[in-house]
């Protein structure tokens, strides 16, 4: 009973206009290595927001902070009004029931069928009768266009199909916040378009908010409402897709046009070339 009251209070806090996600001056380090150096970011209700950046710039860390896997070193991470730093495990789990996360390669349970994968969160968190679970699973699978694949084993799925099944599983409990970790990685152009469209459609159908962490500029530009560029642990640029296209920020230009060199250097920091080659060898 307490569980339902808890969920109710979460919904209320969303309804009064709390931003689903807000980060204020968030810093994070793995030991000595600083990953995030003060990030401010917020997501409004109904928005699909992209976090763009090169590999290893701290995007995935951001997602893990929002999902509550990691705790910020300093600053504040708020998800629907809850400070993630002070949540207990039980409260975190309660919050996560209203969140969905699509992992990079789907993270489907390899020992279960497609149907069982999508049914998993329903079975774990509800006591619905089997017929209702069956109908709900088929509805979710239908939404991603894979109703006919319910009996397949996960090993039989192509990369794009696995991603879609994982998406169906992510939205099985109708989350209010959906997190995507590199949803476009390793997909062919057709699957890529399909996933992009699904992200937008599901977000709008559920009235949820979505955060897409990716390095695919063009696909995300087509579907999102707002974009943050992350580089070296900081937000370096932000704006709507139109603003980004019009931007003359050198980093944004480099990223959008995929130039090898620019504010993000081609070379890893190193002593001068001549010195490396001859300086020490001669001595």
């Amino acid at each position: 009973m307490a569980r339902f009251i808890g969920v109710g209070s979460l919904l209320v806090s969303v309804a009064v206009g709390e931003a689903p996600v807000a980060l204020r001056d968030v810093r994070f380090a793995y030991g000595e290595r600083e990953i995030l150096k003060g990030v401010d970011l917020s997501v409004q209700r109904g928005q699909v927001v992209a976090i763009l950046g090169g590999s290893g710039c701290g995007k995935t860390t951001l997602l893990r902070l929002i999902g509550g896997h990691l705790r910020a070193g300093s600053g504040k991470v708020e998800v629907s009004g809850h400070d993630m730093a002070v949540l207990r495990r039980g409260e975190l789990y309660e919050l996560r029931r209203r969140m969905g996360m699509l992992f990079q390669f789907g993270a489907l349970f390899t020992d279960l069928t497609v149907f069982e994968n999508v049914a998993f969160p329903l079975r774990e968190h509800t006591d619905l009768p089997p017929e209702l679970v069956h109908d709900l699973v088929l509805m979710k699978l239908h939404a991603v266009g894979l109703r006919g694949a319910e009996h397949l084993r996960t090993a039989e799925l192509s990369g794009g199909m696995a991603r879609r099944v994982a998406l169906a599983r992510t939205v099985a409990l109708d989350p209010m916040l959906i997190l995507y970790d590199e949803p476009f990685a390793g997909l062919d152009p057709i699957s890529l378009g399909v996933i992009g469209q699904l992200i937008r459609r599901l977000n709008d159908a559920l009235g949820a908010s979505s955060i897409v962490v990716t390095h695919d500029v063009h696909e995300s530009m087509a579907i999102v409402d707002y974009i943050y560029f992350v580089s070296d642990g900081r937000i370096v640029a932000e704006g709507t897709p139109e603003q980004i296209r019009a931007s003359e920020d050198p980093f944004v230009c480099q990223f959008v046009n995929a130039r090898a060199d620019g504010p993000v250097p081609f070379h890893y920091p190193a002593p001068p070339y001549a010195e490396s080659l001859f300086g020490r060898g001669a001595a």
Binding site: Y93, R96, G100, M101, Q104, A107, F109, T110, P121, E124
Partner: peptide, 15 residues
Amino acid sequence: MKATEQLDAMDMMAV
């Protein structure tokens, strides 16, 4: 399951 993020996915599903 850990390497393919299945454990993380489960944790994220509040399981």
